[in-house]
Amino acid sequence: MKKHIAVVAGDGIGPDIVGEALKVLAKVGEKFGHSFTTSSYLAGGAALDSVGVPLPEETLKGCQASDSVLLGAVGGPKWDTLASNLRPEKALLGLRGGMGLFCNLRPAILYKQLAGACPLKNEIVGEGLDLMVVRELTGGIYFGQRGREDDSAYDTMAYSRAEIERIVRKGFEIAQKRSKRLCSVDKANILNTSQLWREVVKQVEVDYPDVQVSHLYVDNAAMQLVRNPRQFDVIVTENMFGDILSDEASQITGSIGMLPSASLREDSFGMYEPIHGSAPDIAGKNIANPIATILSVAMMLRYSFALATEADAIEQAVSKVLDMGYRTSDIYTEGMKKVGTNEMGDLIAQAL
């Protein structure tokens, strides 16, 4: 297989962690006989410093022309005082919108080797945790009409039936590949958009008779995530609810440095990135944990390139390295073997 990947390392630790992910990707190509080529582009603060805008046209066009996108992280305190239209985070919205990435996948996995990092009691999480939040990414209140007049402001949440149906179907398709349980989260007791959402879910579920469907209001879902997270397999929800719940789910795992994400459009094209931020205070110090970015590459192989065996191999290599006791500083505990960013990348590549 030959694939071309657009690489947007971004800011802070972005270049550090992306470099290790590409190291692992190269090892996959070598081991399984694939050819992965890359082109690098600027976005976020790095683009602001270089060309004065957070998302250069060249970057968007390069990403659109690729087979997939690997993103590091954008933003940092250096650019916090800029006008909202120039903030580095605008690059993320521009990339998502410009490439039609409407479906965000956020797995929350508690690795058995890191069980001690989980803030919940052992009897709640049991032998581990593995759930997936499927978040609608290009609609809702983040993209609705907004405005401000004197002491008043408004933000509008709007969804069409078509927007809801396409993300709901993604949720069902992913549930079919997992444990066949789907929980739809809304606020149908209050919001008209949520009432339409629930109506669409009930219509779509007849096409997936093998999937067990449940419905929760978002406030209850937030409580249930900490009360009994193992009840969930796949959660599908709208943009703002998904933003909040996926962050909550990530914290249950105890380590934000371990979690990847994917943003997909209706075909197999996607953008892959760790869920953590740019952490500029540790950039270039060989401290950052590259595992979330490496696991994002595994998601790329699985969801964009249909290379499930190769994706499994990366995930198994990560687990093997953790079994051997190697830890970056963010997941280090006494008695383990502390390693840096580069060493962790090397170890995972070797474990392949």
Rank of each mutant, 00 (worst) to 15 (best):
N228T: 14
N228K: 15
P229W: 01
P229F: 00
P229I: 02
R230T: 15
R230P: 12
R230I: 13
Q231M: 14
Q231C: 10
Q231I: 15
F232D: 10
F232W: 05
F232V: 08
D233Q: 04
D233S: 07
D233Y: 03
D233K: 03
V234G: 08
V234H: 06
I235L: 05
I235K: 00
I235C: 00
I235V: 11
I235D: 00
V236D: 11
V236P: 13
V236F: 11
V236Q: 11
T237S: 07
T237E: 00
E238S: 14
E238P: 00
E238K: 08
N239E: 10
N239K: 12
N239Y: 12
N239C: 13
M240T: 05
M240Q: 08
F241M: 03
F241E: 01
G242H: 00
G242S: 04
G242N: 02
G242C: 04
D243G: 05
I244F: 07
I244D: 05
I244V: 14
L245P: 07
S246Q: 03
S246I: 07
S246F: 05
S246G: 08
D247K: 03
D247P: 02
D247L: 07
D247F: 03
D247T: 03
D247V: 06
E248S: 12
A249Q: 09
A249E: 07
A249M: 11
A249P: 03
Q251R: 11
Q251E: 06
I252Y: 09
I252N: 10
T253S: 11
T253L: 07
T253N: 10
G254C: 13
G254M: 14
G254Q: 14
G254L: 14
S255W: 07
S255R: 01
S255E: 04
I256E: 06
I256D: 12
I256Y: 06
I256P: 04
G257L: 05
G257S: 05
G257I: 02
M258Y: 11
M258F: 13
L259M: 15
L259T: 08
L259N: 04
P260Y: 13
P260N: 13
P260G: 14
S261E: 10
S261L: 12
A262S: 08
A262H: 05
A262N: 05
S263V: 10
S263L: 10
S263Q: 11
S263F: 06
L264C: 10
R265C: 14
R265I: 06
R265P: 05
E266H: 07
E266T: 14
E266Q: 13
D267M: 02
D267A: 01
D267R: 05
D267E: 02
S268R: 15
S268K: 15
F269E: 06
F269Y: 15
F269R: 02
F269Q: 07
G270H: 13
